[in-house]
Write a protein that binds this DNA or RNA. Structure first.
Length: 259
DNA sequence: ACACAGATCCCGTGATCTTT
DNA sequence: AAAGATCACGGGATCTGTGT
């Protein structure tokens, strides 16, 4: 989808982008091949050509940081086809308190499509380990992580940087007409939760953590991790679905030759 | 070369939503 | 309860294409 995207260019919005598609300009290369493009002046065309060739080489180099700055948050989903194969879903649990009242991260769940990893406070949740686990990935997937998980982590672990594209399924799902939180979304998309964590929510995770700390019971921690794992893994499945729907909603599919 | 009309972008503001 | 992005909405600014 990123190769069909023009709306990051100066003075090009979503409308002009669609206009290009209608005229048969559906990729950067086709834009570059033309000397004139209906809808923009030749001055603008030249500027766009320069910008596009820079972007083209950034794509060749799979420069995730470049693209995270290029696209506004709400359009970062367009990078999923290029960076999704090297993406990491993130879901944190906390002790439930506001940060200025002693709130802290208890669990950071990470899933790259193959392996699930959980860093647990008091065991292996350290800034260094987090950095190690995050490094090398090109995209992060969260559910409203933009307003919760990522700022929370950033403030607790000062040196962490999330300078890669962020596919936030909370806002994305809303855009394709799906309402509600993660659990409800799973239900609507037919994603089944494991019996042991069915009906649980974030507050249950808080209670499980407190139980684990007070009674030091390993099985409560395992239960908490199981819950977090379901959340984290499901983000990946949902990302695939939402990406397809978002792409379809742009109308681009009508202009891509079916072969 | 110039002016106009319509298209499009862009920048507030305030309300809304979900996360633990 | 706090944070952050988005949406809807509207008005102002800018650009494009057309006609004279």
């Amino acid at each position: 989808m990123i190769r069909h995207t023009f709306s990051f260019l100066d003075g090009i919005g979503l409308r002009l982008e669609r206009h290009f598609w209608r005229m048969g300009i559906i990729s950067w290369q086709e834009f570059l091949n033309r000397n004139f493009v209906n809808g923009i002046s030749s001055d603008k065309k030249e500027m766009a050509d320069v910008a596009l060739s820079t972007t083209l080489s950034a794509l060749d180099g799979r420069d995730a940081q470049y693209f995270s700055r290029l696209l506004p948050q709400r359009e970062q989903w367009r990078l999923f086809d290029v960076f999704g194969s090297n993406a990491l879903s993130i879901d944190i649990e906390t002790n439930g308190l506001p940060e200025d009242k002693g709130g802290f991260v208890t669990v950071v769940g990470l899933y790259n499509g193959y392996d699930y990893r959980a860093l647990v406070k008091g065991i292996d949740l350290t800034e260094g380990n987090l950095k190690k686990e995050l490094s090398g990935y090109s995209m992060i997937i969260t559910f409203y992580g933009i307003s919760f998980d990522i700022p929370f982590l950033s403030r607790k672990f000062n040196s962490l940087r999330f300078e890669i594209p962020h596919f936030d399924l909370g806002f994305a799902s809303k855009r394709v007409g799906l309402k509600g939180g993660l659990k409800r979304l799973e239900g609507e998309l037919g994603i089944i939760r494991d019996e042991s964590v069915k009906g649980m929510d974030g507050y249950d995770a808080v209670k499980l953590w407190n139980l684990y700390r007070r009674r030091n019971r390993e099985d409560t921690l395992e239960h908490l991790l199981k819950y977090n794992m379901e959340d984290t893994k499901n983000l990946f499945k949902i990302a695939e679905i939402i990406y397809k729907r978002l792409k379809a909603s742009t109308g681009i599919n009508e202009f891509i030759s079916h072969s």
